[in-house]
């Protein structure tokens, strides 16, 4: 068996496992199990990314997707509840929307270049410039690093701005509010709030 064929088999096996994990996530109602499966989902996709030659992405997915996301979710579960209370509703509208969207997308794949096609248009435009220039322009052997940090450095700067904004958002939603609560705690909405509602803090690790 050739190397490429081997990779295709690994690829298909991992994708099939991902699909089963996703179905399990959909069916399960215990949110703790869902959190564990989300971690497994990220780990499987990290493995798939290695098979698809995206080692840097796999690294980030394993650290951020399987690590930080799972921790964030467990923190949220600790502050809220561990089970879905309502039984899962079968929603015909949702099913129809999903089938229509999925059908349209699958119809669109007939125009896509075949998997692994070396003549795909995406490979012919700016990519050769980056691959050839990386060593001389930037001097970093890892092409992904040289694009991320140098050729497209402004994009990464923008990404930092987005994370900063999200951080501020989380801070305002959870952190700063505690001080306000002492001053104007009486004006908070009363109905529906249980007396033992958990206090914020500890979500953001």
């Amino acid at each position: 068996m050739t190397g490429a064929g081997m990779i295709t088999i690994v690829d298909i096996a991992l994708l099939t496992m991902l699909c089963f994990t996703a179905i399990a996530i959909m069916v399960l109602r215990h949110l703790f199990a869902v959190a564990a499966l989300t971690g497994a989902f990220s780990l499987l996709s990290a493995g798939l990314l290695v098979a698809l030659d995206a080692v840097d992405v796999a690294f980030t997915e394993a650290a951020v997707g399987a690590g930080i996301s799972t921790v964030l979710m467990l923190g949220t579960l600790a502050l809220t509840q561990r089970r879905e209370h309502r039984p899962p509703r079968f929603s015909l509208t949702a099913l129809l929307v999903v089938i229509a969207t999925g059908g349209a997308l699958i119809y669109a794949t007939s125009d896509m270049p075949a998997y692994g096609d070396p003549n795909a248009p995406a490979l012919k435009h700016v990519v050769p410039f980056y691959i050839e220039g990386s060593q001389n322009d930037i001097g970093v052997p890892n092409i992904v690093t040289s694009i991320l940090a140098s050729y497209r450095g402004y994009d990464t700067l923008g990404e930092v701005a987005v994370i900063f904004t999200a951080g501020i958002g989380v801070m305002f939603l959870l952190g700063l509010r505690r001080e306000d609560e002492d001053d104007e705690g009486a004006t908070r909405r009363g109905p529906g709030r249980p007396p033992d509602a958990p206090k914020p803090g500890g979500t953001k690790s």
């Binding site: 698809l52 030659d53 896509m112 998997y115 692994g116 096609d117 060593q135």
Partner: peptide
């Protein structure tokens, strides 16, 4: 990432 895969290709590290 699937779109970026090339048959017989390796990870983009020189």
């Amino acid at each position: 990432i699937t779109l970026g895969k090339v048959n017989g290709g390796t990870a983009p590290i020189l």
